[in-house]
Amino acid sequence: MAMLEVKGVSRFFGGLAALTDISFGVEKGDILGLIGPNGAGKTTMFNVVNGFYPPSKGEVYFKQKKISGLKPHQICKMGIARTFQVVKPLQRMSVLDNVIASAFLRVKTRTRAEEIALDTIKFTGLLDDRDVISKGLPLGKRKKLEIARALATQPEMLLLDESFAGLNPAELDESIGIIRRIKERGITIMIIEHHMKVIMAISDKIVVLSYGQKLAEGTPKEIGNNPLVVEAYLGEAESA
């Protein structure tokens, strides 16, 4: 069953087509990798799914229900949580309070919210930093906090926007572990990532965007052998 279906989505900013007629689906329990050169429209795609930008054309369905046109908070309530590429911690709140704030989505009392939040930060390895004001966190931990906060809303689907960018190799391994464990919990994941090794290793399916168009779609193996992709994406990296 397709968890998320993107049907013919276009998004224009004035005369600029950031996305043109994009269609793909994400199966329940899968990890879908969304890749493409800078400016390909990956984050715009997330913003459309998450509700920040309504699509100019086309529709998005989540569990067979139309979500395009809804507000971000409604989409989050339905079960889609996201992280931001440019991390957005609630700066003057502690790590724990950040996660408590998002845990309140599904529970009423502070005690229950705190339980969920503690579980979540344990899961993401932030337990020792729970009382740190998030303004003072190093980047690696801020990225983890983004994931923790999204998870605390108890989503069925998680959108991860470059959760690995800027991490050192040790942090990278740790984060891959976290994502694999999120998948084990049965949460469907859509991920934007530039680390080709990571994306090839964890994705069940990959969608390639380039200049707002869908260039290719397939398993990591198919994508790796697709000449169009190699030219548009990997080829560029080689010449750099």
């Binding site: 998450n50 949580a81 957005k88 919210a113």
Partner: peptide, 23 residues
Amino acid sequence: SKLGYYFVAIREDQDAAESLGIN
């Protein structure tokens, strides 16, 4: 309470708050 957390979340980052399901 929940309200207080939501208020502070909105103060700190309205977009983040919105995407955490806060109306």
